[in-house]
Design a protein around this nucleic acid. Sequence first.
DNA 1: GTAATAGTGTCTCTCAGACAGTATGTC
DNA 2: GACATACTGTCTGAGAGACACTATTAC
Lengths: 218, 218
Amino acid sequence: MRESVIVTVDVVLFTLLDDELAVGLLRRADEPFKGRLALPGGYVHQQEDTDGLAAAARVLRDKTGIEAPYLEQLYTFADGARDPRGWSVSLAYYALVDRATLECQAKDAFSLVPVAELPRLPFDHNRIVDKGLERVQNKAAYSTLPCFLAGTVFTLAELQATYERVMGQKLDKSVFRRKLAELDFVEPTGEQREGAHRPAQLYRIQPKKSRMLFDKAL
Amino acid sequence: MRESVIVTVDVVLFTLLDDELAVGLLRRADEPFKGRLALPGGYVHQQEDTDGLAAAARVLRDKTGIEAPYLEQLYTFADGARDPRGWSVSLAYYALVDRATLECQAKDAFSLVPVAELPRLPFDHNRIVDKGLERVQNKAAYSTLPCFLAGTVFTLAELQATYERVMGQKLDKSVFRRKLAELDFVEPTGEQREGAHRPAQLYRIQPKKSRMLFDKAL
DNA sequence: GTAATAGTGTCTCTCAGACAGTATGTC
DNA sequence: GACATACTGTCTGAGAGACACTATTAC
């Protein structure tokens, strides 16, 4: 017995907007919920997409123009009530993009909304965003994940601020740097950031260590 | 553009067999791979199953007779190569069952294989088991999850042994008990386990705290 | 008594947190 | 010089690990 099931991918696109975690939303071009703000999503294309991840990357690229440096499966929402068209499966992915990359690649037709100010979204998209937030916050302290929100180069103060924003708590500067040194996944570029006061060393992620998991929290 | 996609659920059933983590496998009744050992799995039934979790519970119940006390979504495997019939989606779940419950509920037609001795499985079932193992091992130290493998009542020595088996490392008795006391999720039943030597106090999980996550490792 | 397992007490050393201190830039 | 930000050094308290110790059963 084989039944036809609607299979879509939906992407939660996270970035930092004014030092707050924000989500990328699009106005839906088609029914159902045409015209409403929702997560970028679309059908899986069996000919085009080798797997779920590829489908998510394609959907994100086609709908927003963005090639996310970080894209990972989040959860799969599958039930008979989430879509008015009937039983459906949504392969949910989440993406992390820094503001610079986003500004440079993004098409205009798309909104960034801070997670604290999200409107009611169609389908179960609020649940999907919640699940994404939970995942990002849980993983933040134990991984290099927030680095993808900080851009390609950053000062240590900026990186610390990024971790603090995602984790939702203040960190001690001295402790943060001590652990960074131990974990050894950033390296100085040699460049400095000039500003109003003493310039700061610029750093980047060591290419081989861009996706690390730690034993202890940062 | 809506395309029909095969949607199945597959369940990795973990239990402890001779102090080793083992997986429940079934001989496939139908093509493809008829007669081969594989994970219990089946199609989603849109009329019957309210959601993915319900589908996984039903498949596990129908194929093995087991009502798993712990059942959680693991990952979704979706691509064009995993099933010879074409592009397919497998909603993978993992279940934890203690030996006593398993013995009492299980139908006979099913094999328990220690994870170290797994044969080559059809589809991408080896990948699914690997993912499940990874998940269980990662979560073990930070959750009550291994308790579901220990049975409804257990001595502290048995519980420690269970954690050690799942985590793959020895723990210090004194440290283990100190943390158990702090986390406060087991309670004495009042009963004792009689044996060859000094009897041990029996414990159970506090019903309200059966699924806890810890900040620190046990 | 001995053996074996249950359960507890205590020392030490590591490390996170707190915070003060120094360095180097702008004005 | 003052001030602001970058960066470093050091003290302390909590807690994990190691391990010895006591308790209670069977024999």
